[in-house]
Simulated assay, not measured.
Amino acid sequence: MNKNSKTPTTAVTDLFTTGLQNMARLRPVQTATLNAWSDLGGAAWKFTSLRMQQDVEAKKVLLGCKCFEDVQKVQTDFFSKAIADCQAEAAHMMKIVSTPFTQAQISATPSTKRGYDNVPL
């Protein structure tokens, strides 16, 4: 058997080690991704529960309306506020998603600047 040939166990170990090294390079991006998904999920739950509370309150006000004009006013106000809230939440979620990724890309990008001791003579 040739001395340079690897056993199957050594080849798998080398492949696994190389894979771990490649994954370690992506760690800033992975951390940012997990944090962004966590923040996004929390914001979605908070927004959904708030909108459900506002929906229940609007239904209570609708049940107390005496005429058709009051019903129209309550519904118009409710839907106008709902649209504005959804637009604001969409912008908030885009901010949550985009901010960590730009920071992770900056930290994952290798620096091309020379260090103080890395000056050619």
Rank of each mutant, 00 (worst) to 15 (best):
M1P: 04
K3Y: 08
N4V: 08
S5G: 08
K6I: 11
T9L: 12
T9N: 13
T10N: 13
A11S: 07
V12N: 06
D14H: 07
L15Y: 10
L15T: 12
L15R: 06
L15I: 04
F16R: 13
T17M: 14
T17S: 13
T17H: 10
L20W: 08
L20T: 11
N22D: 09
A24R: 06
R25K: 15
R25D: 09
L26T: 09
L26N: 13
R27I: 00
P28T: 05
V29A: 14
V29S: 12
A32N: 00
A32F: 00
T33D: 06
N35K: 02
W37Y: 04
S38I: 05
L40K: 06
G41W: 00
G42Q: 10
G42F: 04
A44F: 01
W45H: 00
K46N: 01
T48R: 05
T48E: 08
L50F: 04
R51M: 07
M52H: 10
Q54C: 00
D55M: 05
V56N: 14
V56Y: 15
E57M: 14
E57Q: 15
A58L: 05
A58I: 12
K59N: 14
K59A: 15
K59Q: 15
K59W: 12
K60L: 14
K60W: 09
K60T: 15
G64E: 08
K66D: 11
D70V: 00
V71P: 01
V71K: 04
Q72R: 04
Q72M: 03
V74H: 12
T76P: 03
F78S: 02
F79A: 09
K81Y: 01
I83H: 06
I83A: 09
A84Y: 15
Q87N: 06
A88F: 10
E89K: 01
A90M: 03
H92L: 05
H92M: 05
M93P: 05
K95W: 03
K95M: 06
K95D: 12
I96K: 02
V97A: 08
S98N: 10
S98I: 05
S98R: 07
P100S: 13
F101S: 14
F101C: 06
Q103A: 15
Q103P: 03
A104P: 02
Q105A: 13
Q105W: 08
Q105C: 11
A108P: 01
A108S: 06
T109D: 12
P110G: 09
P110F: 12
T112R: 13
T112G: 11
Y116P: 00
Y116I: 14
D117I: 11
P120S: 13
L121T: 11
L121M: 09
L121W: 11
L121R: 02
